[in-house]
Write a protein that binds this DNA or RNA. Sequence first.
DNA 1: GCACCTTGTGTACGATGTCCACATTGCCGC
DNA 2: GCGGCAATGTGGACATCGTACACAAGGTGC
Lengths: 212, 212
Amino acid sequence: MTSRAGARKRDTYRHGNLRNALVQAGLELVRSGGPDAVVLREVTRRVGVVPNAAYRHFADRNALLRAIRQASLAQLAAAMETELAALPPADDPVESARARIRALATSYLRFARAEPGLFRAAFSTTDMADTENESADGPGGLTAFQLLGAALDDLVESGALPPDRRPGAEYFVWSAVHGLAVLLIDGPLRGLLPIQAHEAGQRLMESIERGI
Amino acid sequence: MTSRAGARKRDTYRHGNLRNALVQAGLELVRSGGPDAVVLREVTRRVGVVPNAAYRHFADRNALLRAIRQASLAQLAAAMETELAALPPADDPVESARARIRALATSYLRFARAEPGLFRAAFSTTDMADTENESADGPGGLTAFQLLGAALDDLVESGALPPDRRPGAEYFVWSAVHGLAVLLIDGPLRGLLPIQAHEAGQRLMESIERGI
DNA sequence: GCACCTTGTGTACGATGTCCACATTGCCGC
DNA sequence: GCGGCAATGTGGACATCGTACACAAGGTGC
């Protein structure tokens, strides 16, 4: 055998695309094991490079983790965009705006449950200084947070939400959905059966709509 | 000097109360640095004992971390109980029940912001198998979750909440509060000024009351 | 064609979690 | 009282980890 699975021995001295390869390998690790699974030596091992090579592209393990986190956030945003795009066109602007918010919440929760590792990584605090918007957007160029904000704006525009209740609304919606996601994937609500989790999600979205 | 601060050299061969001392030292570490700061060797160092001594009381680092987590949860529950106890007596049972829920939410958020390390530890996933109720209760014998459940029951009893909306209500309330707490202490909402954070909390509690 | 800057390598160090064998001692039945 | 045993603490060792420092390889610009 040449080396570890997926790490074919390179014939060129230079790798050519190391930085990106490291992030990809890191994503694999994070996917099955969360942020703690991102072991620098293992990442470089998978890419077929010596540990120190990573230091030519990242200041330290934390910097690599930050890049992986951005990529995870981008995947979340992408999943949300996809869900939005799949929404059937609606005539009623009110119902349309509501449907979009539901879709965003649904895809957020689904992503968290389908990819808990990525989700954990996306919101893990690697260290205090974070850029928060470096490249966390999806293909459409909007972050998850911005997608939510836009949907809420539409809700106001459609007349379903009084403008004076608009400020701070994303904090409430986001908190509720994020909270359930966290409690489900590694809080005390982990262990809930998929059906129960789904019901909790439905119940949550009802209350969000009422409380917004 | 004898040894590290707080770790006076013991004259007896036996420590006498090692298990507890380890948890206490662990709590100190977790308090300023979160779960990752719980380094087994450092914990034993502080207690003035050799690293391996910990293995007489905990299977491994994870087991120690679990104990610390339980203690953190207990502190959270205690903070919530204290807040409840400080509530002025009210005649109106509806308003009384509402006030209790607000008090619980407030103390939850305050605890998260005042003790982010403990809070993170309380909800960190050390590993998959968790007991969830081993000794996570406060002095009153109720966990944070149970305190919330009781307040919601009272809300139903007072007539302010229709019984058919009771099931699953704690999931909603807990999710919303927990979500904001997490976003504030190590999510993208960290960095909010204290005033802003407080406002977000107020706004959240309004929406919770409306959406419940 | 050659010096240089970038990128990958080799070696090394201190720290960590945990294993195994050994030391110390409180407590039990006698 | 006392002798042995189970409980508790110690010492040393090992693999692994993040990372620092010096060196090698090789594209690139003059």
